[in-house]
């Protein structure tokens, strides 16, 4: 019986009906956490001794970077679950995770560039972390492009899952090699001011933002997956019922 929930999760219908109730709560939690975190971080956290106010972009940059990387693993793991247990739902999660992760990677790169201008004096540096993030973006784009290339969804799902898994094996190697490459080429003019310890007055708003980003990620992943589930299962009876239910509700509202 311990596996029952796992088998249930394989049913798109169960997922769709169960998660509908979670969405408003997740949305509420992320709005509250992100509002509190950004007001706290941008308005009330103390200035950085070296960077002044410009460091405050950390409150968006760091959570986005966290989730950009975590999102790749979420995508790859759900792809693996789909390949192993032939679960339709987990392929939908994988496909939904790809564009979200790519957007988060772009946000991380963009905020990094904006932060780099006042701190390093230039928008783009071939720093190890930036370069790794750029390659991560290419990995995401590869998965998205591969998904679009196939006309049959089932084949696209499996191919993307395999590519995501191959990417997962490679990510640690890529990170290590880029690190090594950077230490070899390190330009002398740029110094990364990465303090090992961060003051609690700066850390708590950051933590709030990170949790808020996780909530937002979960919200958008579930919302996107639900849309994909509806698209894929639109022929089934339960989707027809759901949709007609929505229509009558909409009419009643007017």
């Amino acid at each position: 019986m311990a596996w029952q929930w796992f088998h249930r999760l394989g049913s798109p219908r169960w997922f769709y009906q169960k998660t509908g109730a979670w969405l408003p709560w997740l949305a509420l939690a992320s709005v509250i956490l992100l509002t509190v975190g950004s007001v706290w971080g941008l308005g009330f956290a103390p200035q950085d001794a070296k960077q002044g106010n410009s460091y405050r972009i950390i409150y968006i940059h760091v959570p986005a970077s966290f989730l950009a990387l975590a999102g790749y693993y979420i995508m790859a793991i759900s792809g693996a679950i789909g390949l192993i247990w032939k679960m339709k739902l987990s392929f939908a999660v994988m496909r939904a995770a790809a564009p979200i992760g790519a957007v988060l990677t772009v946000i991380a790169l963009f905020t990094g560039a904006v932060w780099g201008k006042p701190t390093w004096g230039t928008y783009w540096v071939w720093d190890a972390r930036i370069t790794s993030m750029l390659i991560l973006l290419f990995l995401y784009i590869g998965v998205i492009a591969l998904a679009r290339a196939f006309s049959r969804e089932q084949v696209a799902d499996k191919a993307c899952a395999l590519l995501a898994l191959v990417g997962t094996v490679n990510i640690p190697i890529i990170y290590k090699s880029v690190d090594w490459w950077f230490t070899l080429h390190q330009p002398a003019t740029i110094k990364l001011t990465q303090s090992s310890s961060i003051d609690p007055s700066m850390f708590y708003p950051l933590l709030t933002m990170i949790i808020g980003f996780y909530c937002m990620y979960a919200w958008s992943l579930i919302a996107h997956t639900r849309t994909l589930v509806l698209q894929r299962e639109w022929r089934t009876q339960w989707v027809q019922q759901e949709l007609s239910g929505m229509e009558t509700q909409g009419k009643g509202g007017k």
């Binding site: 590869g142 492009a145 490679n170 890529i174 090699s177 880029v178 090594w180």
Partner: peptide
Amino acid sequence: LLALIVMPLYVPVLIF
């Protein structure tokens, strides 16, 4: 497409 999906995987080989 092949170039797009394979090139990021070539990175470690190129670097070393």
